[in-house]
Nucleic acid binder design. Sequence first.
RNA 1: CGCGGGGUAGAGCAGUUUGGUAGCUCGUCGGGCUCAUAACCCGGAGGUCGUGGGUUCAAGUCCCACCCCCGCAACCA
Length: 647
Amino acid sequence: MKPYYISTAIAYTSAKPHIGNTYEIVLADAIARWKRMEGYDVYFQTGTDEHGQKIQAKAEAAGISPQQYVDQVSGEIKRIWDLMNTSYDRFVRTTDPEHMVKVQKIFKRLYNQGDIYKGKYVGKYCTPCESFWTPSQLVNGRCPDCGREVQDAEEEAYFFKMSKYADRLIEHIESHPEFIQPESRKNEMINNFLKPGLQDLCVSRTSFTWGIPVDFDPGHVVYVWLDALTNYITFCGYDPDGASDEHYRKFWPADLHLIGKDIIRFHTIYWPIFLMALGEPLPKQVFGHPWLLVSSNESGAGEKMSKSLGNVIYADDLVDLFGVDAVRYFVLHEMPFANDGALSYSLLIERINADLANILGNLVNRTIAMDHKYFEGKIMAPTACEEIDDDLRAVALAMPGKVAKQMEGLHVADAIDEIFVLLRRANKYIDETTPWVLARDPEKAPRLGTVLYNLLESIRFAAVALEAYLPETSAKILRQLNVPNGGLASLASFDGMPVGGQVGTAEILFERMDPVKKLQEIADAKAAKEEPQSTVTFKPEIAFDTFEQVDMTVVKVVACENVPKSKKLLKFQLDDGSGKPRQILSGIAAYYQAADLVGKTLVACTNLAPRKMMGFESCGMLLSAEKDGKLELLMLSDTIPAGAKLC
RNA sequence: CGCGGGGUAGAGCAGUUUGGUAGCUCGUCGGGCUCAUAACCCGGAGGUCGUGGGUUCAAGUCCCACCCCCGCAACCA
């Protein structure tokens, strides 16, 4: 059997994955299942990426060890992958000791052969913050965190000689047009990163400890991307000492790395170069899939899910509401090949009703019900064919090939559509043949039996093909038809339903939903869930004299205007009572019209260190209150004069 | 001139590579049917294909200029 290695990106264990992240594993699963149906020996790897500063910080905030933290989140991710009924062969974790040892060996080997060298990381250092910054990160020449002066400083670090392999990589990308998908990304990588010249990549860190230690240099941990990317080979059986096992020899190079479009650069530049340095072949294809966005209201376009927007949707919540296959169907079908897709509850309900309940579910239901009604569930021989049957049969027989073609190009949504073309055709066929009319004339029984046979067989075709996308539903339909899944081979001819056999009982596959009621239900459930949790947090206690250092002054708005080219900033000219004008910039353009604020009496913190924003100096901070996307400036009545102090 | 994506029927999209009657799903209106989950089938209405120019016998599609929207980056003291 021909091997086929497909992987997803390993999920970063900083938080529970939302439906957008879950989309990737479902997409990979559909491809993996289809490849198995086509007879490939599939190896499907997924897992979690568990090192890095962010995770260390999250664990500290949660008051547990990083290991406990990643155990918890990784478990949660695996639970969701399982809930989505995904057929991965291996779920890997970068905290696996075996992986860690291999990464250390890889690092050492690259060091020994001169691809990694020890150098100096030159930058700006802010002593109070204990942070390194690159010149581009500095704000107005100062520390972006605290605004204080920074010093030139250097730190030992390991670097990878990217430039050494750049030409070879460009040549590989140019000569393998299928390597980066969608193709539009190819030029982006070459023009933006490769052509201008690759910088050597810093591949070690000393600023945190939650990573794989560089075994020959304590204090350094391996850069997370080097750690993460190598998962594709370390867990496949690669041995840095040259004794890679049979599994590796069979499956590497991977056929497809399925990843999000945001990490294409790492997979099409760094990863291939690491592999070149190791002397291993490159993966055959990297597909950067688009994102699943949420649209919060009917007309709203998609926006990225984020906690601060409060629009995060989780796969398990959706599965509770709609069932696994409905969610799988939605994410697979609603995602175009290259553009971002949008998800909303009303869209989801619409798709389930229109496609799954009406076209698919109702077809299966009405067909099996008719067979019971007219033939007590017996599968009749198709002896009375008519010309009108030819088109249905032709559509059915052509379907598997069309699906295969779409899948070959990774157009999963279009592949599913091909199956629904057949289902729609079958519904139409019922109207064309009007079985209920045939049933009135006993002499037409053979014709009626033939019509039902053709319908049952068409449904069987669809059910077999749907296995890759809706595995549970596929099995349910075949159970109702009472036939085994004969695989793609059984779709070569239109005679798979056993004549003389008996169909099962008709059961509802997808319940039709009332959109208004269902949306209300969802809103109620959401409200009930959100009620108990409080998002208000309080900072640690401070001494009174610390508080007293803050100088807060009443100011009058003399002038206010939008900062050009800025979405958030308003520029204020203020009277602070001193006689000298004071300029403050504030990021509240989304909440206030500049003109409306002229003449208002506000409060500002007036002894903050000045800071430059978008080229303008800001001397202080206007006080406002914010929660859940609502913001209001602190506004006093106009009777209090400028320069008055808060006390 | 920061980088990128996009503007096609009320909504969501395909079509643009290789110019040649503007298409799909949903919605809407009308009709048909009654086997079925008020489902299914047929038909109609609805489009200056962002704007202006150009090339061409012919432009949604190619060329030039411009406008608008959305991400990212820079801003949130």
